[in-house]
Computed example of a mutant assay.
Amino acid sequence: MKTIYIVRHAKSSWKYTSVKDHDRPLKERGINDAHLVSKYLAKNIQRPDVFISSSANRALQTGIIFCENFGYPMANLKISKQLYSFSDGYLVKTVKALDDSFDSAIIFSHDHGINTFVNKFGSKPIAHVTTCGVVGIQFKEKHWKDIKKGATVLVEFPKYHK
Rank of each mutant, 00 (worst) to 15 (best):
I64F: 03
D23L: 03
D49W: 02
V50L: 14
V135M: 08
K96E: 09
V118M: 00
P158H: 09
T62E: 07
D100G: 11
N69H: 12
H22D: 09
L77N: 04
G136E: 01
L77Q: 05
S85V: 00
F51N: 03
K142G: 01
I137Y: 04
G63D: 05
K159T: 13
N115R: 06
G89T: 13
I52C: 10
S12C: 05
A97T: 12
L91M: 05
L26A: 04
K145N: 12
S13G: 01
L154I: 03
G122C: 11
I126F: 01
N69G: 06
S53R: 00
K145V: 13
S54L: 04
S101G: 06
G30Y: 06
K93P: 04
T62Y: 02
Y72F: 15
H143V: 03
L154C: 11
K39F: 12
R8E: 08
N32L: 11
D100A: 13
H112W: 09
S53M: 03
T116I: 11
V95K: 08
G30N: 06
D49Y: 08
K140T: 15
H143T: 08
F157K: 14
K93A: 15
G63A: 15
N119V: 01
T131P: 14
D49I: 12
N115Y: 07
I137N: 01
T3K: 01
H9E: 06
H143A: 10
I107Q: 11
A151M: 13
W144G: 10
S55I: 00
D99Q: 15
A97Y: 04
K39E: 15
T3Y: 00
I126E: 08
I4M: 06
G89R: 10
N76L: 15
F51E: 03
K27S: 00
S85G: 00
S54H: 10
F157Y: 14
R47K: 15
I31L: 02
L60D: 00
I107H: 10
L36I: 06
S12A: 12
Q61V: 00
L91F: 05
I107E: 09
K43I: 08
P25D: 02
Y84R: 03
T94L: 00
K39Y: 09
A56W: 00
K20A: 14
H161D: 02
T116V: 12
H9M: 09
G63Q: 02
N69S: 10
T3G: 00
I147E: 07
W144L: 09
S12V: 02
I147W: 11
G71A: 11
Y160F: 15
L91K: 07
H161A: 07
T131F: 13
A127G: 15
G113V: 08
L83T: 08
K39V: 03
G122I: 06
K81D: 12
R29A: 10
S87E: 08
L41W: 08
V92S: 04
